[in-house]
């Protein structure tokens, strides 16, 4: 047993690496859910953000310009979803599925068009996000070196949870948003225009997914790979369902997936084939959903008796 502590803080570090993009995207999905839009386009929004972040960083030489362009790209793609689903009353599921495929296509296309690269693009000119250790706190043993040694995007992700919680449940905007999501007609009969809130929610999810993508391509690694989100956006969708659209619950769900990925990663180091450990987050996700639904079903029947 050599140095349990070292292994564990390494594990926590990879938990957080896995967690932050999923958390950001899931909070985006949560806002949409609360506004009554089932957004399954998180995957595509995140992928667009990841690409744009790499491009922005590459051309400007600044990681933060990269993050910003990731956010802009996420918002741009989500605006198509918002226009189609809200203004034109199109089916958000069809739109989101098509936009996910669009994002895969356009990023791979631009990879060739801009850098003449297929598959993975790595270049010294891409500036990655540096971690920003918080003095003293990051010296704390165990979690300290992980929790207080994140990138800027990482800190934003952890801050977003209480902020969204506060806005949703303690402010007028949050109250109106929840009302819109639950009964749009009731909201409009009182003069609240559901479309505006839904637009806002979808664009916000675009921005958050853009951030998530930037963390993925400039924080976790410094490169862009075709389809590099590989299902994380879908896991975020499930996180929202699992948490029944509560921010703190979403954090819990994201933690669960972070652990699944990190432990899978570690088992892989112990000689388990990567094909089996790679499946872990998806299986854990599904099992969690099944368990949660059962729990929920039981809870509601126990009320009866």
């Amino acid at each position: 047993m050599f140095s349990v502590e070292l292994l564990d803080s390494a594990l926590f570090a990879s938990v957080f690496r896995a967690l932050i993009p999923i958390l950001l995207a899931a909070i985006g999905g949560l806002i949409c859910e609360r506004a009554g839009v089932f957004n399954i386009g998180l995957e595509g929004l995140m992928l667009s953000g990841a690409f744009a972040a790499v491009a922005g960083s590459y051309f400007s030489g600044s990681a933060y310009a990269g993050v910003l362009s990731g956010v802009v790209a996420g918002v741009a793609v989500s605006s198509v979803l918002a226009y189609g689903a809200v203004t034109r009353k199109g089916d958000p599921i069809v739109l989101a599925v098509a936009l996910n495929l669009f994002a895969v296509g356009i990023t791979a296309f631009l990879l060739v068009a801009v850098w003449d690269v297929r598959g993975v693009f790595q270049d010294p000119r891409i500036v990655g996000l540096k971690t920003m250790p918080i003095p003293a706190l990051s010296q704390l043993p165990w979690l300290g070196s992980v929790l207080f040694n994140l990138t800027l995007v990482g800190y934003v992700a952890l801050l977003v949870v209480p902020v969204v919680q506060l806005v949703l449940f303690r402010t007028a905007v949050g109250l109106r948003l929840r009302g819109v999501g639950e009964r749009p007609l009731a909201a409009s009969s009182l003069g609240v225009q559901p479309g505006r809130y839904q637009y806002g929610a979808i664009l916000a999810s675009g921005a958050l997914c853009g951030l998530a993508g930037a963390q993925l391509s400039l924080g976790n690694v410094v490169q862009f790979a075709e389809n590099m989100t590989s299902g994380r956006g879908w896991i975020a969708v499930v996180a929202v369902m699992l948490a029944r659209a509560h921010p703190v619950g979403v954090l819990g769900a994201a933690l669960l997936f972070g652990f699944a990925e990190a432990i899978g990663f570690r088992l892989q180091g112990n000689g388990l084939p990567s094909q089996l450990t790679d499946a872990a987050p998806y299986v854990v996700t599904l099992v969690a959903l099944v368990v949660a639904r059962r729990q929920f079903a039981r809870a509601s029947t126990s009320v009866a008796t």
Partner: peptide, 30 residues
Amino acid sequence: MVFQAFKLFPSLTVAENVIYREEVTRRGLL
């Protein structure tokens, strides 16, 4: 207007339904 089909938000409280869009806030919070 009191509609025949009520225009209420089931998951919100009675008071929240009443104040919706005419919220009472203090320092930005409900």
